[in-house]
Amino acid sequence: MSEEKKLYTVSVYTENNIGLLNRISAIFQRRHLNLDSINISTSEIENVSKWTIVLQLSEERVKKVIGQIEKQIEVIKAYYHTEEETIYQESCLFKIKSHLLFDERQIQNIIKESNARIVTVNKEFFVIEKSGRKEEIELLHRELSVFGIMQFTRSGRIAVTKDEMKISKMLEAFQH
């Protein structure tokens, strides 16, 4: 198996329980694994959480980590996927001084070309939201930082797989 490090998206389906965050994060912490991002949300099934964890690792190690995650009682199933196997997005928010919107005409073009969206405008500031891939968000960040950004934040990755996740059937059975 390849020792080469790659970016993997780990998807974990779990019960929705307090304490599980601690349990899962301990798995990474013990092995000195730094996460690029982590996102926890509801899944397609009621009362089942879906975690999307992004990290850089060799395939051999990611498999072992999956084993440790799945071993936790309240974890239903865990998978790992490469970039090519998933459709993924991140989201970000920029807060920028309002006068720049009018003083710097170029900003409006940047917003339009990047498919970003103005969420709100008031006298002091306006907020731009952009969803996309990491590189797109980084590009937008670079372009806007020239004018000064009051606040910036970016979400963790969320992803769905191109192929069917076998979990769907398993989860359906849970509902009955």
């Binding site: 304490g19 601690n22 013990r30 009682i73």
Partner: peptide, 14 residues
């Protein structure tokens, strides 16, 4: 104790 025992239990619950 839930936090403390998490890494050394098969399962725990409060």
């Amino acid at each position: 104790i839930i936090g403390i025992s998490t890494p050394v239990t098969k399962w725990n619950h409060q």
